[in-house]
Amino acid sequence: MSFAVATSLDDALAAMAAGARPIAGGTDLVVGSRQGKGALPDAIIAIDRLPELAAIEVGDDVTRIGAGVTHATLMTDATVVDQFSSIADAAALVGSPATRNVGTLGGNVMNGSPAMDTGAPLVVLGAEAELRSVDATRSVSLDELWTGPGSTSANADELCTALLIPNRPAASGSAYVRLEYRRAMEIAVVGAAAAVTLDGDTVSTVRVALTAVAPTILEVTGLDAVVGSTIDDAAVAAATAASEQATPISDLRASDAYRRHTIGVMARRAVDAAARRAMGETIAVPVNRALGVGAVA
């Protein structure tokens, strides 16, 4: 087994072209190997010291969040907290301070777990993943990227360099809530992100995506119908649609029936919190803790 620390992006890409797997925080990769799920890859290239991956750049239309940005940064960065609050909500819930300190956005996305917390926020914000290899750079939609639990369509030599997020129109807000049995050190039983844009008192766009109720992050469809309705109506419609469209499994964390019920509750609360933010209300990150037990709205 070999290990090297990449000192430049090119370095990292070359190592990957030669077959190395990237390690950022290692909170999925190393932990996964310790749980006896499998050995570490034969060759590892550490990408955690690359400044190129650690930047958050606000462009005219798109904000570029480096794949190496840690959850600790995401939850406190002013741009993310103000503009893409749902990502900050999600990052603030990941693991413990130690997990957030080294765990990265790129690692979360590329690990491809249906329980990843930043996934649903990225979906509702319309993000794309920037993938780079020695030869090429391309952007893919997240829908295309995630192909199943723990699998992505990225080629083995492709590094995720950034997540590209369209800047938000005025009167917009987003939020992420998740069901938690305790107030820290949790894994999503279910979670929901919502992004809402308002036109006065009514909803002009709403997107909702769900965590841990399908093989990959699931975007709720058919919400066009709520355009023009009140926030409350939109929240209720999103809840119903979320419960209907979810295809949850039963496992040791919850039964399918309970997941189906609570995903509706999470969707309603996410839409509600997103709309309140869109109206200018300040709800601290993360919504879960700001609003109390079990994410009570």
Binding site: L179, T262, G292, V293, G294, A295, V296
Partner: peptide
């Protein structure tokens, strides 16, 4: 105890 009746989460 505080209870979130929608989810059953008690604190």
């Amino acid at each position: 105890v505080r209870l979130d009746k929608d989810t059953g989460v008690a604190r």
